[in-house]
């Protein structure tokens, strides 16, 4: 059953990276409960444009929870109140008539605001650039199943590989630590045979790049709750272990 609800939005508006930001209140009336959260913002923006005002800048792409582009702090929760979904998968039926909704950008010093709700997430790209890949020489594609992988290992690696790189884990973390993202990206390769050659170098490089930009994990567990892919913090523990091992091994191998 679709219904229409009236909402009061408190949205973070910031004209640019160096501008002063502030909350602006908007009335969003007659919103269908079938609308997604982003569609609700689209409606508000259309009305703003009609009224000759600047629309609210926010990011999105796939709108089906697979690209990791969207991401808003909704009432102090990354991706809003629904568990295991991205902002684009949140629907207005999760809210009630008369609700006040506070919408903020991802919070972290290394996620500076570009404009309004859009933040610069290149610090996460830097972590991937440090080792979130395997190096293979090009040539004919290898036969499928040439490298056997136990089913359990493949499943676990796939759980980690589900990370869409949205950054909700950082935004949800009181320390602005990027441990869950980094651990997911490290472990989905470290668990598989193809990732072994660069395992220790990867772990060291990615963790140290992460540390340059983000805070230090204190094991609150907020990231796991916020993650739209429900990636468990077990990967963080395994990455911590791999990191200490890497510190020992790299010395042995590199001298």
């Amino acid at each position: 059953m679709s219904a229409e609800i009236n909402l009061t939005l408190k949205v973070w508006r910031q004209a640019g990276p160096n501008a002063e930001g502030r909350f602006v209140t908007y009335e969003a009336n007659g919103i269908s409960t079938d609308a997604s959260f982003l569609e609700m913002l689209d409606i508000v923006n259309e009305r703003l444009i009609e009224a000759g005002e600047e629309p609210i800048v926010f990011e999105s792409d796939c709108r089906e929870g697979i690209c990791g582009t969207c991401g808003l702090m909704i009432n102090g929760q990354a991706h809003g109140p629904q568990k295991g979904t991205a902002t684009c998968q949140l629907h207005m039926r999760s809210f009630s008539d008369g609700d006040h909704i506070v919408i903020e950008p991802w919070r972290a010093t290394s996620f500076p605001v570009l404009r309004d709700l859009a933040v610069d997430r290149r610090a996460m790209d830097a972590i991937i650039g440090a080792g979130g890949y395997i190096s293979v020489n090009t040539g004919a594609a290898a036969d499928a199943n040439l490298t056997p992988v136990p089913k359990e290992t493949a499943d676990t690696a796939f759980d980690a590989a589900a990370c869409i790189g949205c950054g909700a884990c950082v935004a949800a973390c009181p320390n602005s630590a990027a441990q869950l993202f980094t651990a997911a990206k490290v472990q989905h390769l470290n668990l598989l045979p193809q990732g072994q050659a660069e395992r220790w170098a990867r772990t060291e490089a990615m963790v140290e790049t992460m540390e340059a930009f983000f805070g230090s994990c204190t094991n609150h567990g907020e990231c796991e709750e916020a993650c739209p892919k429900e990636i468990p913090i077990d990967f963080i523990a395994w990455t911590n272990r791999d990191y200490i091992k890497a510190k020992v091994k790299n010395r042995k191998l590199v001298g």
Binding site: M73, G76, H220
Partner: peptide, 15 residues
Amino acid sequence: AADQRYPGGRNYIAA
């Protein structure tokens, strides 16, 4: 140093 605060407050779920 890494934690950028906004005035909106934070909802704790797991902590």
